[in-house]
Design a protein around this nucleic acid. Structure first.
Length: 295
DNA sequence: CGCTCGGCCTGTGCGC
DNA sequence: TGCGCACAGGCCGAGC
């Protein structure tokens, strides 16, 4: 589910209510399958007891699609929501802090069967880490080690970084034969792009997603370097993309989907030419584009 | 080294 | 109405 704009939205919403709050207790649930750690939380019970319980939250950070919660114990929680992860704050009375939405996924009381870990705060509020498909994870690491952690160091520059330039991207694409769409999803090349925004940015740039990476012209690469942060910024403004059950930390839906140009719009008319949006499989991912407008 | 594909999980929606 | 298959926001590792 969450790509950079969704994780950024979750980060901001959680920070607005949980910054400075003290964790009173942790509950790790749903221990199946046996090989996954309790609650998908990688950390020994002793370490969690010592460095998480009783600690307060000193800040929230994001790197690409990874959320980092810093604690007063000088330890940090590194969290990846992968496809179906949610972090949702609930009031003592069980209501979402932001009120949430009256939809199927939110009518249900928490915890539900997807709730893997619950953080109880002294305020009485609770933070639910829900993950239907169980691909996501939480890891406990010393704060000084976060930036040296392999999960973080392997990530390429983010779309908003100063070092995300046309020169950088041209160099990285210059000898690659993989489709440009596949290249954009490579987190080592650029950190934070996922399936939705790869399709959207390529549409805005007028580039066919199946093109060989090394075939892109300088002008096309310059367009991409502009459209990628543009589409991400617009999505952050709208609170990310929800097309089924993504919600932010307050249970709010993102509205970018209403503005999506190609993603999820197979067979619908292209906003530019009116022709049908195509959907193909590329590198195992559903890929949406306009054959008239993207070359 | 580069590339493609299957696997990890659970659920939903579609075609038959 | 029921059944089985394809696909879903991500990423890793095996195998060529």
């Amino acid at each position: 589910m969450p790509e950079l704009p969704e994780v950024e939205t979750v980060k901001r919403s959680l920070a607005s209510v949980l910054d400075g709050q003290t964790i009173e207790r942790i509950e790790r649930r749903d221990v199946s399958p046996a090989k996954a750690p309790d609650g998908q939380f990688y950390g020994s019970p002793a370490d969690i007891e010592q460095f998480v319980v009783g600690a307060s939250i000193t800040g929230f950070r994001r790197r690409a699609k990874v959320l980092i919660i810093d604690l007063s114990s000088d330890y940090s929680l590194i969290i990846h929501l992968k496809m179906s992860g949610q972090l949702v704050v609930v009031e003592p009375d069980g209501k979402r802090v932001g009120g949430g939405h009256p939809t199927k996924s939110l009518v249900q009381e928490l915890p539900d069967k997807t709730s893997r870990t619950i953080f109880y705060f002294e305020s009485g509020q609770r933070l639910f880490y829900n993950d239907q498909r169980k691909f996501g994870w939480i890891k406990l690491v010393p704060t000084p080690e976060v930036e040296h952690n392999k999960l973080i160091t392997k990530l390429g520059p983010e779309p908003f970084d100063d070092d995300f330039t046309a020169e950088y991207l041209a160099e990285r694409l210059s000898r690659r034969t993989i489709a440009i769409k596949t290249a954009l999803l490579d987190q080592k090349m650029i950190g934070g792009i996922g399936n939705i925004y790869a399709d959207e940015a390529l549409n805005l740039a007028g580039i066919d997603p199946t093109r060989e990476s090394k075939s892109l012209t300088t002008a096309e690469i310059e367009k991409l370097v502009a459209t990628i942060p543009a589409v991400m910024n617009r999505s952050i403004e709208l609170g990310g993309t929800s097309f089924s059950d993504y919600v932010d930390g307050l249970g709010q839906f993102g509205k970018y989907f209403d503005e999506a140009r190609v993603y999820g719009r197979a067979n619908e008319p292209c906003l530019e030419c009116g022709g049908p949006i195509s959907k193909i499989m590329l590198g195992g991912r559903g890929t949406h584009y306009c054959k008239n407008c993207q070359h």
